[in-house]
């Protein structure tokens, strides 16, 4: 089908090609241990975060420089979020949430570089992140509250007749959390990048190309916003889930 369009109009659309997982060296099959572009971009993300958070703060200055300010801003934002949403006892899990936020925001932002690979556009990655949150939050909930954690599903403020129905709905919504949590992030990343690619494909036609470049620029700006917002949303939802686990009463 793609070849048909290619033949007829001279346009090349491969919007999904950017998401291919391919080995870094050679053309072999992708085993679980093969270094792939996933490895490369995750490593770049980890190194970039380390550069910002460790090298940026090595001055330990009372009056921070620009890099240290950014690191402190990120720290302050997530720290405040955890404290505000999950409460003081949620601060114990702050490093974990900070890791999630930094990884996602850097994955999203680095994915916006031309020719890069967006690790957070894959449900395999976001799914693992969301499942890790889901499993750890559920475990924390049961460890902290015991069976009282099940009170999360038993809405005591509702009339008794409605409670079983509500419990069922709550239970379903609870188990849908990791799905929505992961698909929201991956879907946003994938859609934005694919749209940019499609707009870029149109630039092969001379008449449309100025418009196409304008559209790509606009989309890129929007995607910058989305990249940050989705990382923020993922993190704040994690905090909300954590709050549910720590204080399951409605």
């Amino acid at each position: 089908m793609a070849s048909d369009t290619e033949k007829e109009t001279g346009l090349v659309f491969h919007p999904m090609q950017q998401f291919e997982v391919s080995p870094l060296f050679g053309d072999g099959p992708v085993h679980w241990y093969t270094p792939t572009n996933v490895t490369l971009w995750m490593a770049i993300a980890v190194l970039a975060i380390t550069a910002l958070m460790v090298l940026g703060t090595r001055g330990r200055a009372i009056v921070p420089n620009r890099l240290q300010s950014v690191a402190e801003l990120a720290y302050g934002m997530i720290h405040k979020m955890v404290e505000d949403v999950a409460g003081k006892d949620g601060l114990k899990y702050f490093p974990y949430i900070m890791t999630l936020f930094m990884f996602i925001v850097f994955g999203n932002m680095l994915g916006l570089l031309p020719k890069s690979f967006t690790v957070t556009s894959h449900v395999a990655v976001t799914g693992v992140l969301a499942l890790a949150v889901f499993i750890s939050v559920t475990t924390i909930g049961f460890l902290k509250n015991g069976t009282a954690f099940l009170g999360l599903f038993w809405v005591t403020s509702a009339p008794l007749v409605l409670r079983p129905v509500l419990a069922l709905i709550e239970l379903i919504s609870y188990f849908v959390r990791p799905v929505s949590h992961s698909v929201r992030l991956a879907g946003n990343m994938m859609a934005g990048h694919a749209v940019i690619k499609v707009f870029a494909g149109f630039s092969a036609i001379a008449v449309i190309s100025p418009l196409s470049i304008l559209a790509v620029t606009a989309m890129f700006g929007l995607e910058l916003l989305v990249a940050f917002i989705q990382a923020y949303v993922f993190t704040i939802l994690t905090c909300v889930y954590l709050k549910d686990a720590l204080h399951p009463s409605h």
């Binding site: 679980w32 690191a71 890791t99 693992v128």
Partner: peptide
Amino acid sequence: PNQIFWLAISLVVLYWVLSKIALPRIAAVI
């Protein structure tokens, strides 16, 4: 499996770097 494997390694490394070096340092500075 490939993605999950590398993700796990990245997250462990990142968690270690942040929780052992970066976050205590920033907290101390602040």
